[in-house]
Design a protein around this nucleic acid. Structure first.
Lengths: 583, 583
DNA sequence: TGGATTTTCACCTACGTGAGAAGA
DNA sequence: GCTCTTCTCACGTAGGTGAAAATC
């Protein structure tokens, strides 16, 4: 069992930075090609936080942090996050998920959706998502498999995507599936829509962040947790490489129904693939996805011990439609739609094939166990061999960890405070209409803070940027307050990275998340915690023991104890979430 | 100049009612056919208001009212409201606007949209819309004209429609067109979607309400103003009667493009109508709607003296799309789309024909000048003659008011406080996704108030109902808080009127608005204020002098001074908004 | 019978999709 | 050739529309 923690991070590294707020310059318009006249020249944090952070006093900062947290509710929370359509993700991951990136932006499929529970119903949360590089390799698809093809290209500007309902109460988030399906991927480095920019032929890992804050402005001072679902890892492509992936997309994406085999003339490629469809060598077809094998069912006895919302997409389709009106394709589906499967039921449906794949994945990741500096190690040393994407012919077992069957993907959670300086990420707002209520009213203050570059964080990425633009997907923000927060320059369109604007809110958040590429390090060194046996009463959902969020624990990567209960349990609540400091 | 005022309303009539809050029972679900488990058994007003209203103390109530108003901002506002696509509305009104109502619900066309200015940028507002009967007549379409055909059928349950962005800041509302296009009309008395229920072959008048409140719960104690645009009056039909209306719809509604004459075979009816199209006897064709006649241009010199947002639909299409994603038809249009015309420019485009029509309209209305009780007068006495819809053949001039050319429609504004009891209206929420922020958090209180029927208001409508259901168009509310506010019974679907549930928020608001059928009375007795000459500097937008909202002025119907500046000006700011008490 | 209402239908638009051709 | 990217396209779905037939 290997745990990694950054909790030894000296407070000076966190608090030594100057007050991170800088002027917000420019205006944002949700009208493509046009900007409103609204323009903020300066902004300041909510009263009470300003001076404390300005002087960089740790104690005052701590008080402020507590105040920010307690301003909403005193109750504790214990967030539990499910990945929706987990089995579908796993199907894709077995074949090596590919996501198309285009100039005009392409959605992810499967869509990244989670269901949440364990939130404080009354407290406000901001939910975010970003996508970070899984490694620093470039890949190629050769001989029907993905292989390392050199060192990664320079990183694209990072963009952070805030769920459009943010901020909302815990009750709201728990009431329905939280969907990030409107996030779009692009390879257009100068994208002006606010889409997430990725490098083609590179591997990426989506991440999900929960921030306890009732105001975007409070992000920097708020507790946040990060959840990583390894099965959502993917390689960005401009055109599909693996026919199996193509077929899985066609079979499952409602928007690609036109390419399904309906008897009447289909497209050419479709016919070629028909006989060698993934279905033929996968564990189930579209129609019987939910049939369990005898082996799978052996120990599906673990009761659900806590009130956890695990609604299926079907069940939540209409409530989802509230915030996602344009995706009727995904919500009005026939019975064959795999989205019908809820995460809780799908866990037990893992086939041996998928289990094998996961082991492969874990194995590969462990090859990089000792790499803690990202760009300092030449990936070529490990290159020219196949990647962790499973192939039918070959597997590497270089791990020292015990090999076990029925290991399921174990989501990771990272818990820490927002309390740092700027970095190069961009805050990205959901493109759906949303309304922040009056939470943005505090942003009207014209008092400007100092703009200073934060000290490089412990992760030594060396990529701190003094200012950063806040990107918002076009047509994102309906409230003028929100427009002002996510300041954009007052010219005719969105500015390409790296325009040196600073936005108060985003900066600290993003820096902190960037700093969390501590995860990225972990991922490369020891991505998955080893399976551990736990009692039968294990909870089928991933839960975590609440962490002490005092000053000493600002930055902790919590590796919850993964459970191997014959492919049934993600996580056990409170079971061995011991922190082992390392590094 | 005729002004009507209800300001003599004794305070006892307003404040003598007991505390209007009652228990909220039931749960609301945005999933059609399903209800969430959420359920509120009781609710109470925000702390501070409770006792004052409970004892019915006028002074305390006044203090509370002020407190509610000042809680947000001290700044005054001076709301100015434009009807968007006003010229289009007038085109329809000339022919006698018809709105199709179907069982499954039909949108209005033209869509009801307004642009706002003069709001306090920082204050929060709730914007609402409802549709009330114009008179108590039933109509029939005979010999190419609408004629009275008897007394009105029993009224349908009233439903109030809250704009989905509510509550939002004045800045938000002023930043773009406020659209109510998602409101749907139905004739299905037991409608469960929350659509507005109307009687076919009856005449209706949409109304727009601005409530200064940052919380739905504060509605009852907040100032509100009502705006009426006579050109939006219409007759509800199950099938179009007037071919001209049909043609106008086809020509202008993007969803009906399939019926336009594009050269290739059109539908049958279309061909019949082609030669006798409205265009042939209307002032302009689709393509040259914006060409002014020489007469029209004579005095279009009035400058726009205030910063008023009067963006066209084209200009605001994308920001609108933020909250109205499913209406791309209306926002992505070719140049011929009449929506391109902004209200400010369209005012000067009235033809003599349309002016004549409006005079006809005013004339007819004045026939009922002395009617103040709604159902006590037999409409048959005036029936069997043509209605005020203009026909080519006939006009009645029974008015004592001076006849003038170039009279434009004068919007009315009614300003008063929410401070009364229950009635039979239903609060109706916009079906688009929206998020109330934390404004609903105060609704979690379980403390119940007393439930009492309000005393009949001065308008003597005699239709007070002790409880009312809060209707929400299905798939409306995404936040669980909002669901709780708009309590619905915990059974499988929406309950048909008149389910006796009481909702704290809606009741007082709706009662107050119902009480405002004072307007309805006015409408029947003297619907339009007479045109008045004003100086050249008149503002092309309708503005109103800010009214004293002290206790003495709770209920005032303000008839702003209409302006006749050669068909250019709606209203002049501060010009002669003298109140003349009458009745 | 005749007017009013309901039902069904084709049309149109928007948009996400993979195929395939063309380009680099 | 090869690999990768860009562009255009038809397909499918949703949903608003008036026409016309069917029903009341």
């Amino acid at each position: 069992m290997t745990y990694h923690s950054l909790s030894d991070l000296p407070m000076s590294a966190v608090l030594g930075q100057q007050y991170p707020f800088g002027p917000v310059v420019g205006a944002f318009s949700c009208v493509p090609g046009k900007l409103t006249e609204d323009c903020i020249v300066g902004s300041s944090p909510p009263s009470g936080f300003h001076s404390a952070f300005r002087v960089g006093n740790a104690k005052a900062a701590h008080l402020m942090t507590r105040r920010a947290r307690e301003a909403e509710t005193d109750a504790e929370d214990d967030p539990v996050v499910h990945l929706e359509a987990k089995d579908l993700w796993e199907q894709f991951h077995e074949c090596g998920t590919e996501m198309v990136i285009t100039k005009s932006g392409r959605r992810m499929f499967p869509p990244f959706k989670v269901s949440c529970s364990g939130f404080d119903k009354r407290a406000s949360y901001i939910l975010l998502m970003d996508i970070v590089a899984s490694d620093d390799c470039r890949y190629k698809f050769h001989s029907s498999r993905w292989m390392v093809a050199g060192k990664a290209d320079p990183e694209m500007p990072k963009r952070m995507y805030i769920h459009p309902d943010s901020p909302a109460t815990g009750e709201h988030w728990m009431s329905k599936t939280v969907s990030f399906h409107k996030l779009k991927l692009t390879n257009n480095m100068s994208d002006k829509h606010g889409f997430t920019i990725l490098n083609s032929m590179h591997k990426y890992q989506p991440r999900f962040h929960v921030v306890r804050a009732n105001d975007i402005l409070k992000l920097p001072y708020s507790t946040f947790r990060t959840y990583v679902f390894p099965e959502t890892e993917f390689i960005a492509v401009t055109a599909y490489q693996n026919d199996k992936i193509t077929q899985l997309k066609i079979d499952n994406n409602p928007f690609a129904k036109g390419f399904r085999d309906t008897g009447n003339g289909r497209r050419e490629k479709r016919k070629q693939l028909f006989l060698k469809s993934v279905r033929s060598n996968d564990h189930s077809s579209d129609k019987d996805n939910h049939v369990l094998t005898a082996a799978d069912q052996t120990s599906s006895t673990s009761p659900q011990t806590r009130p956890v919302v695990t609604s299926t997409i079907k069940e939540t389709s209409d409530s989802e439609a509230d915030s996602d009106e344009d995706d009727k394709h995904l919500t009005v589906e026939d019975g064959a739609d795999p989205f019908e499967v809820s995460t809780t039921t799908s866990i037990s449906q893992l086939s041996n094939a998928s289990t094998k794949a996961k082991n492969d994945f874990c194995t590969q990741q462990s090859q990089f166990e000792s790499n803690s500096e990202r760009h300092d190690e030449n990936p070529q040393s490990k290159a020219s061999e196949e990647t962790q994407w499973p192939s039918d012919e070959r597997r590497d077992f270089q791990t020292s960890q015990p090999q076990q069957n029925h290991v399921v993907f174990t989501p990771e959670r990272i818990e820490q405070h927002f309390l740092t300086s700027l970095n190069s990420n961009n805050l990205l707002i959901h493109p759906t209409p949303f309304y922040f209520g009056r939470n943005f009213s505090s942003l009207m203050s014209k008092e400007g803070g100092t703009l200073d570059t934060g000290r490089p964080s412990l992760s030594s990425q060396g990529r701190n940027v003094s200012g950063l633009p806040i990107y918002v997907q076009q047509s994102s923000l309906s409230s003028p307050q929100a427009r002002k927060v996510f300041g954009l320059p007052p010219c005719g369109s969105f500015l390409p990275y790296p325009y040196m604007t600073t936005a108060a809110v985003a900066s600290s958040l993003v820096q902190r998340l960037h700093f969390m590429n501590a995860w990225g390090h972990r991922s490369r060194s020891n991505p998955y915690s080893p399976p551990v046996k736990v009692p039968n009463s294990a909870n089928p959902t991933a839960t975590y023991r609440k962490h002490d969020l005092s000053l000493e624990g600002y930055t902790k990567i919590m590796l919850p104890t993964p459970v191997e209960e014959v492919s049934k349990v993600h996580m056990t609540p409170g079971a061995g979430s011991t922190d082992v400091k390392s590094q």
